[in-house]
Nucleic acid binder design. Structure first.
Lengths: 196, 196, 196, 196
DNA sequence: AATGAATGAGCCTTCATTCAT
DNA sequence: GATGAATGAAGGCTCATTCAT
């Protein structure tokens, strides 16, 4: 991974352009124009267009995965782990929307390459494990299909790349809280007032 | 034997090819090969590549919308409306995965054109209204953010295009039921065992 | 191998352009201009630039080889076989100079691919065998290094692509005769008439 | 330790790279990598890629020419002059194969520039003169086409760049001797023992 | 002398689209 | 309706060359 002066500019420009036009729909000329250089000059930084895609997408993907791995070994109730995962996922979307959009649109759930399929799978599995833990501990519903729940949660979060307007960390936290609430408690009214 | 026009073949082939390679990544030659004709011949059926995209995507989009519209005026509890919407959405995915994949990947939540943005918005709104109704009737949680809930549900369902293996209507119904359960009741264990 | 209407034009143009500018130095635009179409249109005939190179070069290479193979099994004195090989080789150069130039410049003696290396080797071997036969039959010098002789003869003939001006079959036959004479008898004056 | 300029390294690297990939097929980056510097740095030594080509090729071309010029004015029988020319030519190929390969492939017999065409022509002419002298002195066959003979000899020698494996001076001398023998005496068995 | 970066031009190839047959 | 051929416009990538540091 080269570290020349304008490397970050290049990747940031690529994230913006790819997320707006799609990887296939964007030309390297678009990216170069966004950075302020000619398309040929990009090749001082990358070896291929695909390289650039991965460079855009890798750091956040790794952060997400690292966070989920660390959470796994912590001693927390499943519901709390779930809230944490959602919080970090949503915060990354808030801070790095274009990067994550590209990941979601171009890589997640596609069979791009073994490496990325493995990352995908591992993240899915870590989320799934949270549901499994919850079910086994009795905190979550016994009949829960953990894999389905994980897929649904990830889908709901990734779908944010289609509607979320980033830039407000407070709102990100609010969204994360609501999402967690829905997945934990559902939308039905609590029978809180049930007898005592 | 009347040789019917091969319009349906063309659209089906396009759905398969677009869902596999993406709209941008697929060439009309790919589509033509899949139907068994030459790319020039496609222009006996379509006026442009984009035409073909819309042709692939429109019927299911309209079915989804029609269903949601009809449901809106029915006299059913919100939870039941929600179950119905999920069921139809999932069944369409089961029956027409390639078509829906193309819609989700290329059109949903993108600003392709006013027409499609309107359809998107209307469907979203109809789903949102179910949550609003539920909250107003007291069946759903008062503090619920209906828009967020609708977006999450749609995201979770559309994400199925990345993992669902179609062809089994029974499994489709099961998935729909589980999804509805999670969104209605959450994953937390019910305090069913409360006395009496 | 496609056979559309202008296939031969395309290959002939490529032969001219490649032989003039070299394969690497020639652009497909050059070739297209020579045929009178746009460079993109060439791809209705070929799959890649290299394809075109092989198409240019294959027919004559095969003719040369076929001729040498047929000669091998004929019952002729070695000196006559040698004259025949030279004659055919020189005639092909006379009739198809640009094609042969491309072969000599870009393919002969280079390790382009196994297929071509094999053709090269076989032709060399067939020529070498003529010298071996001659030496074994006593017609040629016993101490002759057949491989060196074959290489030298082929080199001398192929070098014609750098100087020969084609279009005169009679001159081609004359050149072939002289070449054969030199290789058979050398340039030294015969001591034939020496008695007296 | 004085660090001498790396001019020679640069030229040697260029010779290797050009002879392997061809002048057109080789990039200056290839050359730079072979020397161990970056392509921009090459411009501390050369003014253009073509410059480098000429630098690679000139010394040996001049040596060949100088040798042929000196030989011309010596008082030697034509057959001896021919042996000398062949010997020097082959020895240079043995010692400097990559350089000569580049010359043969890219320059000899092409109309690169007047300067090089003149060198070509002069060398050819000097070789031709040897055959003329031989014919006039009666040592060589009267009917000999001196130009054809010279072209054939040069072709045979230059063709060595396609097959010769350098590094063994003794073998170089052997090859030179055989080549001279073939051109002088041909391959036909001598009727030396024919008396009676 | 060397480097890293940028330039600008060109090249192979792809592709949506058109059209005569 | 279908085909083969052509078009024109990009697009990804390479590369000789320049230049400030």
């Amino acid at each position: 991974m080269p570290r020349p002066s304008r490397w970050d500019d290049v990747v940031a420009a690529a994230a913006r352009v790819f997320s707006e036009k799609g990887f296939g729909g964007a030309s390297l000329e678009d990216v170069a124009t966004e950075v302020g250089m000619l398309k040929g000059s990009l090749y001082n930084y990358i070896k291929s267009k695909e390289d650039l895609l991965f460079a855009v997408v890798r750091p956040d993907a790794e952060e997400l995965l690292t966070n989920a791995r660390q959470l796994k070994v912590k001693d927390l109730p499943a519901s709390e782990k779930l809230r944490q995962i959602v919080l970090v996922h949503v915060e990354i979307i808030d801070r790095h929307l274009p990067y994550v959009s590209v990941y979601v649109q171009e890589i997640a759930g596609r069979g791009i390459s073994k490496e990325w399929a493995d990352m995908d799978r591992e993240y899915m599995h870590l989320v799934e494990q949270v549901f499994v833990e919850g079910a086994e501990s009795g905190a979550f519903d016994r009949g829960l299909d953990a894999k389905m729940a994980a897929r649904s949660l990830i889908g709901a979060m990734n779908w944010m790349t289609r509607w979320y307007e980033p830039g407000d960390p407070a709102q990100a936290r609010a969204v994360a809280a609501q999402l967690s609430d829905v997945f934990l408690s559902g939308v039905l009214a609590r029978r809180t007032a049930d007898p005592s």
